[in-house]
Simulated assay, not measured.
Amino acid sequence: MAIDRLSDLRQAQRLVIKVGSALLVDRGEPRAKWLATLAADIAEMRQTGEVIVVSSGAIALGATKLGFAKGGRGSLADAQAAASVGQVELARLWSDALGTHNITAAQMLVTLGDLEDRRRYLNASATLARLLEAGAVPVVNENDSVATEEIRFGDNDRLAARVAQAAGADAVMLLSDVDGLYDRDPRETGAALVGTVDGITPEIMAMASSASSSGLGSGGMLAKLQAAKIAERAGIALAIINGTHLSPITRALDDETGTLFLPQADASRRKAWLGGRLAPSGVLSVDAGCMAALANGASLLAAGVTAVEGEFGRGDLVAIHGPLGERLGQGLVEYTSVECTAIIGLREAQQADRLGYTPRAAVVHRDHMVHV
């Protein structure tokens, strides 16, 4: 089905709904009345399709239980401990709220690595599919009790988009503390809500404002736009709506108030996964000629590489940057970082002498590359 307006989300066969900490928790306590109305919204959406919830809130809830200052974010150790305690409370909240509507909630904790590694990604996909088939609502959260600052999503907006990819969802709904994306800081006079976005451009990215971040969670408008880029590559619609009201989904869809990012070209599932990965192991910089060739669908050859950063092995994810440091794309590299450094700028005929073996067809093959 085509999703061209917010109200079309009612017909989504599989929908991911992301709920942030600031909406679910107020001063360390759950917003029980608000959650009850959201659960009713979810029950209504399940009349026409399946629903997955991506929910923050474990750290905030656990910090209250443990008496930690700064909402449990005073240190990494505090956050991990608070998350361990808070996940129990978070699971109970969702189980009780959805149970009122005879819906079974299933807790699913994931790490960045679970969705970055192809095999673990497919395992997560299979688990989500089986839970939905069994009639449950998976409640997904990043496993903050083991995540570190270096190896984590950092926000549940992008996690929601990645979960939507893994689940083969039609749409993602991000509940925010503003009505959607504004063309400038929403606190400015004359700021206008952008109702529909047909492809994220640099101009759209420039509209992101820190004003939409409450400080309790880790997201903001920039994270939501990054999530939308992940979703649109996979042919998934994404909506930002105001979640601060009671019955937030019903209100937004009835009033057509929010921002809908239309799905773009539906990439293969492998390329969608590759484009959504968030943690490159290194960077390959290229010259202007190579940048033009890549734009025309060519593979990345050693002759066009000008610099190598980071340490990586064959098959690792690397980012590809242009002459001015602009991000061009990312892909799976065919050489180690040491080998890449050895053949910088060399044509195929020169590479064998440097490597000691017949070179591969490309440094990054076009079939294992996505553009941004």
Rank of each mutant, 00 (worst) to 15 (best):
D117N: 12
L122C: 12
A134N: 13
N123A: 15
L109F: 04
R130A: 15
V140I: 09
A124P: 01
N141I: 02
A124F: 02
L131W: 00
T127W: 07
L112Y: 09
R119H: 15
A124I: 13
T104Y: 11
L112D: 07
A105N: 04
T100Y: 10
V137H: 02
A147T: 13
A105H: 04
A105S: 11
R120L: 11
N102V: 10
A147K: 05
V137L: 02
L128Y: 03
V146Y: 06
V146E: 07
T104M: 13
L131E: 00
N123G: 12
M108H: 10
N141C: 07
N141V: 03
E149C: 06
I103A: 00
N123H: 14
E133N: 12
L112P: 08
V140N: 04
M108N: 06
N123V: 13
E133C: 07
D144H: 06
G99Y: 06
G135T: 02
R118E: 12
D117Y: 10
L131T: 00
V110M: 11
L131S: 01
E149T: 15
T111R: 14
M108Y: 08
A97L: 07
A106W: 02
G135H: 01
T148V: 03
L131K: 00
N143G: 06
D117T: 10
S125G: 10
L132D: 09
T127S: 15
D144T: 04
V137R: 03
A147C: 12
L112W: 07
S125I: 09
V139L: 01
L109V: 04
R118M: 09
N102M: 11
A124H: 07
V110H: 09
E133G: 12
N123F: 10
S145R: 13
R120Q: 11
T148N: 10
N102P: 04
E116H: 08
N141S: 13
T148F: 03
A126F: 10
L109I: 03
P138V: 00
L122E: 14
G135S: 05
L132E: 05
N123T: 14
L132G: 08
G99M: 06
I103C: 00
A134Q: 14
V110L: 15
L122M: 14
G135N: 04
D96V: 15
A97G: 01
G135Y: 01
R130K: 14
A147N: 08
A134D: 14
L131P: 00
E142M: 01
E116S: 11
Y121D: 06
Y121T: 08
A136P: 08
D114C: 04
G113M: 14
E116K: 13
G99N: 02
Y121F: 15
T127V: 15
A105R: 02
A129V: 04
T111S: 14
G135P: 04
A126I: 09
V140H: 05
H101P: 06
A106Y: 05
T127D: 11
N141W: 10
